[in-house]
Write a protein that binds this DNA or RNA. Structure first.
Lengths: 190, 190
DNA sequence: GCGATTATGTGATGTAGGTCACATTCAGGA
DNA sequence: TCCTGAATGTGACCTACATCACATAATCGC
């Protein structure tokens, strides 16, 4: 499936658009390919765009003062990645985004998203829905953090992204779970 | 300031509406008063509405199998409270909302929100913006959970809501921080 | 294919925070 | 006003996980 078809399928889950509208929407997205390890957003940068993942796997992460990494999200196909705070506020990025594998994305600039939202009411509806989905997912993860131990959260993660186990190094999974790589290692060797 | 004025001021931060439009929007909100301890949403209920806090303080919380409480949010004036997952999906609530103090809220039903979003494009924009704000705030809290120790998160919470210290019992603050009340007690007596 | 980096496993040890137990103080209702 | 239940403090003890140290295995660039 090509990039536009995937995006179309995803948008169609929520709203209906004519063929012409779809073409118009697509014209604002720019397809980009990255290789494993490439950086898409660096902390400190000005953030201009968000990214719809077509193929591959990205990670969004924060690095603290002790140069410790915390992963906010693994972005698989049909997920969106960016530093949404920086993107909406115009501030510099605090979040980094890079490629765990080779990846294909559709890039949408902040201006173009707002333009599409202004021009096509249904697109505003679509983005509200998408944002709500992200909000609810993050809230669930926060709850899981408070409620469940690491083992439970590890199983939850693998249930959510079964492909992940073979796709990403274990220390990244540890950084997502918020534990040290040593603890994670001991966890699944028991 | 009365309820409609507060809501108007809040909406006006993001969008511009005519007086007639404001009146039309207000006509969909229903003012409600609750007393300290009253329940607004119970886990297991069908959720029909979201609530804009005009006065007082609500808490949104989850109760796990061990009957342990985890607080997702304290809602002060101009914050919104509901179980947004249940509200959008039509499923039964997993989140509870009740009143820490006597409270005045403006209730908006799911149908009316969608109606306003359909009829007034700017309102759809407004709700997208509000949802994004919630999303970013939750993501920040998640990061803080992974990154900071309890003391740090406690100070962060008091910086965010200075009124909270005298307003809510300490064991609720512990339930927000995700630690036991004993640990919190030892924390600020040192 | 080889040396260097990166990823992973595993032991030893320290510590933040949980749980249980009990005392004390505070607040609200009959 | 008193009585009851909720809120809070504090000690004793336990456990999950962090950190440091080092060994081994896998992977990448030349």
């Amino acid at each position: 499936m090509n990039a536009h078809e995937l995006l179309k399928e995803y948008i169609s889950k929520m709203i209906s658009l004519s063929e012409e509208e779809f073409e118009y929407v697509f014209s604002h997205f720019k397809e980009q390919r990255f290789t494993k390890g490439q950086t898409i957003i660096s902390a400190g940068d000005k953030v201009n765009s968000e990214y719809f993942v077509v193929e591959g796997c990205l990670k969004s992460f924060y690095i603290n003062e002790d140069v410790k990494m915390f992963i906010l999200q693994f972005s698989m196909p049909t997920w969106w990645a960016s530093d949404f705070e920086a993107l909406y506020s115009g501030e510099k990025a605090k979040i980094n985004v890079d490629c765990i594998t080779d990846a294909t994305v559709l890039m949408l600039s902040n201006e173009d998203r707002e333009k599409l939202c202004r021009e096509i009411h249904a697109m505003e509806h679509f983005f509200r829905w998408r944002t709500n989905k992200g909000y609810v997912a993050t809230q669930k993860r926060l709850l899981s953090f408070m409620n469940n131990d690491t083992k439970h959260r590890y199983e939850e993660l693998l249930a959510l992204y079964p492909q992940l186990y073979n796709l990403v190094p274990k220390h990244l999974i540890a950084a997502y779970l918020g534990v040290s790589r040593e603890t994670l290692s001991r966890l699944y060797n028991s």
